[in-house]
Simulated assay, not measured.
Amino acid sequence: MPADQVANARAVTVEPLRRWQAHPAMAIRDQGGAAVGQMPASFDVDRSAGALLAGVQGDGALLTGEAASR
């Protein structure tokens, strides 16, 4: 695949995932008590939101049968 197509494909997939990841990250920050010190300083909100997103995507692949078709 030519480099410009790779860049376009990346832009089409990465940016929506970043926006989607921002939602659970915001919820974790808002509901998790980060502002009042209820979470340890070492807790990585963005990484946790990414893990949540990966789990949702994995479950979706399993439910739709995508994982089996690869």
Rank of each mutant, 00 (worst) to 15 (best):
H23G: 01
R70Q: 10
A7F: 07
D44P: 05
V6G: 00
Q57G: 10
Q57M: 13
P16Y: 01
R19A: 08
V14R: 15
G65F: 05
D59K: 10
E66C: 06
M26T: 09
V6Q: 08
V36E: 15
E66P: 01
S42D: 14
A68G: 11
E15V: 13
L53D: 03
G60P: 05
A54I: 11
L17M: 11
A61T: 10
D59S: 09
V56L: 14
L62W: 07
A41G: 08
A51R: 11
R29F: 09
T13S: 14
S69C: 03
V6C: 01
F43C: 10
M26H: 12
V12T: 11
D59T: 12
G60R: 15
P24G: 04
Q21G: 00
H23D: 05
G60A: 15
G65K: 10
A25E: 10
N8G: 01
L53Y: 02
T64D: 09
L62N: 10
M39D: 06
A51I: 15
V6Y: 02
G33N: 04
D44F: 04
G37R: 06
A25N: 03
A22M: 00
V12Y: 10
L53G: 04
A61W: 14
R47F: 07
G50K: 07
R19N: 02
V36L: 15
A7W: 04
N8D: 04
A41S: 07
A11R: 11
T64K: 07
A68C: 14
G50R: 11
G50M: 01
G60K: 12
A49S: 08
L53C: 13
A35L: 14
T13D: 06
V6T: 09
D4Q: 01
A9L: 10
S48M: 05
